[in-house]
Design a protein around this nucleic acid. Structure first.
Length: 780
DNA sequence: CAGTGAGCGAGCTTCCGCTTGACTT
């Protein structure tokens, strides 16, 4: 029987700490919060000073019972949740729910998981900080009030099952606004001039760029022409030392960004892989906003660096977090044993581990020392100069290990070595080129760059970045797109051997891969919310309420007063936005009138997404013609669709012709464009359109589908035609009545299954979950 | 609240942050 019970948040942490504390201590985990506002109701009693209704989620009931039993047996309970607002609340909920005796309960915190830090924490217990707990309650209640009052307005006004919240709505707004900036962007062109110059040795070429850009083709041309009879010579050689410092160790957000840039992982992929590494004990906790390294980490990093690279590569550095609202309950993300170069794990995990290790090492390494040389070339009789810049690494320092990637690749060119030259060297111009360039439009967000922006704004926390990104895609507010880009022409002029030639060339621009763009629903919801709730959608809303939470944490403000002040302003706006009864639907736009019928054509968000509508509903006259509806196609938007494009959509469903005596139709459904023949539906691939698909193409699709079904079929049973053995993406399986069932591993030849075998697989699948549940029920 | 290719139709949908399962697909 242990005398001491320590409760931490994470089971992996519990395991480590138990080793340090040894006999007399049992360490268990709360698995995060054990209690929360009731999920299916408002959960806050506005009439009763905002009293929250907390409940234990069903999946936590068993855990709570176990914790209760352990607490009952222990002489002292040590609440060791994280040292931040949420952690303090977790301890408070534990104390309340487990009905802990204050005499026997102690609150401790530590910043690093080392024996010393933990023993020191045990020596310095305190009580639960109720002000901090109240700050958390304010945060929790505010988020509930905002989320649960805004979302229903969207159901009513726009579309069911939508959602809004302090974090997600701002995330969507960022993407909507960026897309509009891109739409409004006018790319102005300019001309940049470069030249190749032959050095006096007669063989070496020096490349340089003119220190001035020209706005127009005429100016650029005039400049080139004026260079026919000038001479060029080296005017100046300047060398400047340059230092580069390493980036700080990883936080959740910077890890997500670098893993996306260097390894191509999505935000959630990175987190899942990191979780595995953490559970295996290879890295420290992966949800953190701190760049701090423990003293132990600093000394082992130092030893490793000196061992591998030598003394002069090491530099002791401490980093401070500058992102808004950081709570620093954990260390930065680092390897637990930095000397370990790789880990026994999957290739993906190893790549991420290696990234973390290199970043950690580099953060404790010396600056890189470079030399930047600038060669200036004089043009006789002219004020403009040609300039060549080169960089040489004198001492690589941390660059030996790691350099941080940047998002836009445009900025990294030039860094090559320059040839040796002397002042006054005469140069022979080989060729001058004036190329038309275009100003870059603002970039679309990637998952990772959106996380970076949210972090800069102090919106969201390390534990919520990945789920937020998931939510806004799940609600279909934003989608990840790959855009082909389009062609544009540009002018390139050259002057060579006294001959000026002007050519027009073409390039692709605007191509994008895996970038976030708003859907019509995202845009309409954002417009609606920013119109009625500019305060909540404000990029500084979170930062402002965080200040309030700080006052509460300091004991200078009652949390219920803070919420009351907010609610008194917020709720009337909710009432107003919800009741404003205009017949005009949110996001609706009239495109014009149908020339054939004279009926008006509208676009708006319908029950199932964006639609075009022909004609108006008439509730008075039941006999009047009902309006016609048609969904927009992929790639079309209610913001940009034209009347002509809209009218075309009403041609669907469209009869293509006859095949085997039955009609062939094309239309767009819930899962996209399709053709249907004799009750068989087949999706239309991207390169064909339901508006134009020919009868031959449609028949081919139907026949392909038949072939596929034939290949999929392994066997059927006379006893019951609904029961089939099929071959799918994950191998053979049993299909029955629209549901699929996995084959047991023991079956090697699915074709040999009898009716009884297959039926048994279907029947036994039903009670599998039940047996799994009883497996863990505690006896005795 | 006007439709879909998935039948009827009543009832539900939703927030943010803290943590891992135990499951398919």
């Amino acid at each position: 029987m242990e005398k001491n019970l320590v409760i931490v948040e994470s089971p992996a942490k519990a395991k480590t700490i138990e080793k340090f504390l040894g006999k007399g201590f049992k360490v268990v985990s709360s698995y995060g919060h054990i209690r929360d506002l009731e999920p299916k109701a408002f959960g806050v009693d506005v009439e009763n000073n905002y009293k929250p209704t907390y409940v234990i989620p069903p999946e936590k009931k068993k855990l709570v019972t176990e914790l209760q039993a352990e607490a009952h047996k222990a002489a002292t309970i040590w609440l060791a949740s994280d040292e931040d607002r949420e952690g303090e609340a977790i301890s408070w909920h534990l104390a309340e729910v487990l009905e802990l005796d204050p005499q026997k309960t102690k609150r401790i915190v530590f910043h690093e998981i080392t024996r010393n830090a933990i023993l020191q924490a045990i020596d310095n217990p305190r009580g639960i900080d109720l002000n901090l707990v109240d700050a958390q309650q304010a945060r929790r209640v505010l988020d509930r009030v905002v989320g649960f009052e805004l979302s229903p307005i969207l159901w009513k006004k726009i579309k069911p099952a939508l959602s809004a919240g302090r974090v997600q709505s701002v995330a969507v707004r960022l993407i909507v606004e960026r897309e509009r900036e891109i739409g409004a962007f006018v790319s102005e062109s300019y001309f940049r001039v470069t030249g190749d110059f032959l050095l006096p040795d007669g063989k070496t070429i020096l490349k340089a760029e003119l220190n001035q850009r020209f706005q127009t083709e005429a100016e650029a041309k005039a400049f080139l022409e004026s260079c026919r009879k000038v001479s060029f010579c080296i005017e100046d050689i300047a060398t400047k030392p340059l230092r580069k410092s390493p980036a700080p160790p990883f936080t959740t957000s910077t890890l997500q960004q670098e893993a996306a840039r260097k390894l191509g992982y999505s935000v959630s992929q990175t987190m899942m892989i990191a979780q595995k590494l953490y559970e295996a004990g290879f890295i420290t906790y992966m949800r953190t906003d701190s760049v701090n390294l423990s003293s132990l980490a600093l000394s082992t990093a130092k030893a490793a660096i000196i061992d591998i690279y030598g003394e002069k590569y090491h530099k002791f550095r401490t980093y401070t977090t500058k992102s808004k609202g950081a709570q620093e309950a954990h260390e930065a993300i680092r390897p637990t044993y930095i000397e370990q170069e790789s880990v026994s794990a999957s290739a993906q995990e190893n790549k991420l581990y290696s990234l973390i290790r290199k970043r950690t090492l580099a953060s404790q390494m010396a600056d890189a020392e470079l030399e930047r040389t600038t060669i200036t070339i004089d043009i006789s009789g002219k004020a403009e100069k040609f300039v060549a810049v080169g960089e040489v690494v004198v001492f690589d320092g941390f660059l030996q290990v790691y350099y941080e990637s940047v998002d836009d690749e445009a900025e990294k060119e030039q860094s090559e070595l320059l040839p040796p030259v002397n002042v006054d060297d005469k140069l022979s111009m080989q060729i001058l080129t004036a190329t038309e360039r275009f100003a870059q439009r603002p970039p679309r967000y990637t998952e990772a760059s959106l996380v970076r922006r949210l972090e800069e704004l102090g919106i969201g926390r390390p534990s919520t970045y990945a789920p937020t990104i998931h939510t806004i895609q799940n609600r279909e507010y934003v989608v990840k797109v790959n855009l082909e880009g389009s062609q544009r022409k540009f002018v390139a002029m050259t002057l060579s051997n006294g001959k000026l030639s002007v050519r027009e060339k073409a390039e692709t621009f605007g191509a994008d891969k895996n970038k976030l763009t708003p859907t019509d629903i995202g845009a309409v919801v954002t417009d609606f919310l920013t119109e009625h709730f500019p305060g909540i959608l404000d990029y500084n809303f979170t930062a402002n309420v965080e200040k309030e939470f700080d006052h509460i944490a300091e004991g200078n403000l009652e949390w219920t007063d803070a919420i009351d002040r907010f609610y008194k302003v917020f709720h009337p706006i909710v009432e107003h936005a919800s009741s404003s009864k205009s017949t005009h639907r949110v996001g609706e736009r009239k495109l014009g009138d149908d020339p054939e019928t004279g009926l008006p054509v509208f676009v708006k968000i319908g029950r199932f997404g964006p639609v075009v509508q022909l004609g108006m509903a008439n509730s008075e006259d039941k006999a009047a013609a009902k309006p016609q509806f048609a969904s927009l196609m992929k790639g079309q938007s209610i913001e940009t669709i034209s009347l002509e494009e809209a009218l075309k959509l009403f041609e669907l469903p469209r009869t293509i012709g006859e095949f085997e005596g039955k009609t062939l139709k094309a239309a767009i459904g819930r899962f996209g464009p399709y053709v249907v023949h004799n009750g068989v539906y087949v999706s239309i691939p991207k390169d064909l359109s339901p508006l134009s698909i020919s009868i031959e193409e449609a028949i081919e699709l139907i026949e392909d589908k038949r072939r596929q079904n034939a290949e999929r079929f392994i066997k059927g049973f006379d006893e019951d035609p609904k029961l089939q053995v099929l071959k799918g993406r994950f191998g053979p399986y049993v299909a029955y009545d629209g549901k699929n069932y996995k084959l047991p591993k023991s079956i090697s030849d699915p074709a040999a299954l009898t009716y009884a075998d297959a039926k048994a697989i279907v029947d036994s699948a039903g009670d599998a979950p039940k047996t799994a549940r009883t497996k863990f029920s505690k006896r005795k």
